[in-house]
């Protein structure tokens, strides 16, 4: 517990410093944040173009796909903002600057995650939120029960935690393969692209894989299907729709374990 507190405090200190530095160049910050927003909006433009040719995709309307898009993109945006810099760890190991982090009184995880904290990535979060809010206004026929209303923010936060766990596992993997930073993109950005679309368009094997192996289905698919009043393609029991926070917690625990194993390995081999 004490270590977690030290980590959060250290993270906060480093992030605050980078934010101060960023804010010294407000215009540049605004431009790059906007650039990030537009950059991530490009794939939504592709979806919009698709729906200019058709009313439904895999049985889902544009507003329904936008709900999927908005939730998963906001989740990824949050995880990317908070932990996205973890993927620099491979470079730090290769150039030897990892050692300088190990002699400071703050957990290494917090130092790497906070290093060069890029506030401009808030652009991705904003873009996701904009699409999410639009989809909520555009959806019709959704029964907004209290549970459904609560499920939306819960799924965004649980999704962010799941993506955060993936970022952490990807970073831990770099303890063994220092220049394989790109692998995690398959699960983060790839997972994001995947869960922007309805599960009905993918093969059952793929859906099973992202439900039971890399549980990206819990980022938004399962809870969002509940909100939309649809059945999931695998016919899972109903309580699964609410399992995202639990799955997120399990993912984080596993990621923590992977990170510790990686760091212990580094400290016993020095490479």
């Amino acid at each position: 517990m004490a270590e977690a507190a030290a980590g959060i405090r250290g993270y906060g200190l480093i992030v605050a410093m980078w934010v101060r530095t960023t804010m010294a160049y407000r215009l540049s910050f605004a431009m790059t944040a906007l650039g990030n927003l537009l950059m991530t909006a490009a794939d939504f433009a592709a979806i919009a173009i698709m729906f200019s040719h058709t009313d439904v995709l895999g049985g889902f309307t544009f507003a329904e796909v936008a709900l999927l898009y908005g939730t998963t993109s906001t989740s990824l945006g949050l995880a990317d903002l908070l932990l996205g810099n973890l993927d620099r760890i491979g470079r730090r190991i290769r150039d030897g600057t990892m050692d300088t982090l190990l002699v400071r009184p703050v957990p290494v995880f917090a130092q790497i995650a906070a290093d060069r904290f890029a506030l401009r990535r808030i652009g991705r979060v904003l873009q996701g939120l904009i699409v999410l809010v639009w989809s909520l206004t555009a959806l019709d026929g959704v029964a907004w029960t209290p549970v459904a209303v609560l499920l939306v923010p819960v799924m965004v936060l649980a999704g962010a935690a799941i993506y955060g766990a993936v970022f952490t596992c990807g970073a831990a993997f770099q303890f063994w393969a220092t220049d394989a930073a790109e692998v995690q993109n398959s699960f983060t950005y790839g997972g994001n692209t995947l869960t922007q679309y309805p599960p009905t368009i993918f093969s059952k094997e793929l859906v099973r894989g992202v439900t039971f192996v890399v549980p990206l289905a819990f980022v938004n698919w399962l809870p969002a299907l509940h909100v939309l009043g649809r059945d999931d393609p695998l016919g899972l029991p109903g309580w699964v729709d609410f399992a995202s926070p639990l799955v997120a917690a399990a993912c984080c625990a596993l990621a923590g374990l992977a990170w510790r194993t990686g760091l212990r390995g580094y400290r016993s081999t020095g490479s």
Partner: peptide, 21 residues
Amino acid sequence: TRLARRIGVVFGQRTTLWWDL
């Protein structure tokens, strides 16, 4: 991390400072 508060380390080859600040 407890030790880190009581020792100082200087690596001649690489800096412990923040490069861009």
